[in-house]
């Protein structure tokens, strides 16, 4: 994180000055952590979309990823572990004119917060969720998460994880989200575009960011430093369009080599009225 924050990888000094709380520095993130990139991309998307920061509220649960809003100069509610979407539903329903952006970790979002996550998606409430997937419980020191791949190690899976992992993005689609994208942090432009798309979508937008946790995850697995994790993303992900082509037209060999890769890109787009619009219409009718 340090590098991005101090030198400005994408957003640069201008964005940092405009959006970050200087008083909160130094930040708490480890060297090599992907959270700085995620923050950077979100701020860049906000800048491009010209969001009014007086009308934008950030929410988060508990975890490293959930500490991001603390660094942004805006209203923010840093809530309880897994519950940010419940709070966010209250904020958005009570004042639909506010832009609502939620940061959540994988454990926060699909572990302890899974129930709130599927229901917020089902309601298609107009908020944008940035779910940082580092495949581990980072803040508490590397216990396995519901996203940890089978066979990987965590402090609570010292002999290797024997559970099947969740695919958060597929879950979001199944539950009713109207914009879903997944990107690893090593590509800046596509995630920024997806976040922008998510902010523009009038409904529940879910952007899963695959983000390296060197300290609690990489160290215990095969990825000793940040480069190993970035290489993992490069070698084990495939764009949705490419995946579909290979599965349709590829040889058996090609299909075999592809089938277990993590599909990235814009995964889902749909058009559906968000809950708060439907509620407003109902109220309007009743009050006439």
């Amino acid at each position: 994180m340090a590098d991005t924050m101090e030198t400005g990888m994408i957003g640069g000094k201008k964005i940092q000055k405009k959006y970050l709380r200087e008083k909160m520095m130094p930040h708490i993130f480890c060297n090599g952590c992907g959270l700085g990139n995620v923050l950077d991309y979100v701020l860049w998307a906000i800048e491009k979309e010209e969001l009014d920061m007086d009308k934008t509220v950030f929410l988060s649960g508990i975890g490293c990823s959930s500490r991001i809003p603390g660094y942004i100069h805006a209203d923010a509610l840093h809530t309880t572990h897994g519950r940010a979407l419940g709070f966010a539903t209250g904020v958005k329903m009570a004042n639909p004119d506010l832009n609502v952006i939620v940061f959540s970790g994988d454990g926060d979002c699909i572990g302890i917060g899974g129930n709130h996550f599927i229901h917020a998606a089902r309601r298609n409430i107009n908020i944008t969720v940035i779910a940082v997937n580092n495949y581990i419980y980072g803040m508490t020191g590397g216990q396995v998460a519901p996203t940890t791949p089978e066979g990987h190690f965590g402090t609570t899976a010292p002999y290797g994880n024997i559970e099947s992992p969740f695919d958060m993005s597929q879950m979001a689609i199944a539950a009713g989200a109207t914009y879903v994208a997944r990107w690893p942090v090593h590509r800046p432009n596509q995630p920024i575009n997806s976040i922008r798309e998510g902010l523009r979508n009038n409904g529940f937008s879910f952007i899963e960011m695959m983000s390296p946790c060197t300290t609690a995850y990489g160290r215990r697995n095969r990825y000793k430093d940040i480069k190993d994790l970035w290489d993992f993303y490069i070698n084990n992900t495939i764009l949705k369009e490419d995946y579909e082509m290979i599965m349709k037209f590829g040889s058996e060999e090609e299909r075999d080599a592809t089938k277990d890769k993590i599909i990235i890109g814009e995964l889902h787009k749909a058009s559906k009225k968000p809950l708060e619009d439907k509620y407003r219409e109902m109220v309007k009718e009743l009050m006439e």
């Binding site: 509220v57 929410l59 209203d75 509610l77 809530t79 309880t80 519950r83 979407l85 419940g86 709070f87 966010a88 539903t89 209250g90 904020v91 329903m93 009570a94 004042n95 506010l98 129930n115 709130h116 229901h119 509620y279």
Partner: peptide, 20 residues
């Protein structure tokens, strides 16, 4: 609004309160 459980219902009213 009907929330998914009481954890969410208390969460929603706290969130709403911050909007005034």
């Amino acid at each position: 609004i009907q929330m998914e459980d009481e954890i969410a219902s208390i969460a929603s009213i706290i969130g709403a309160s911050w909007t005034g």
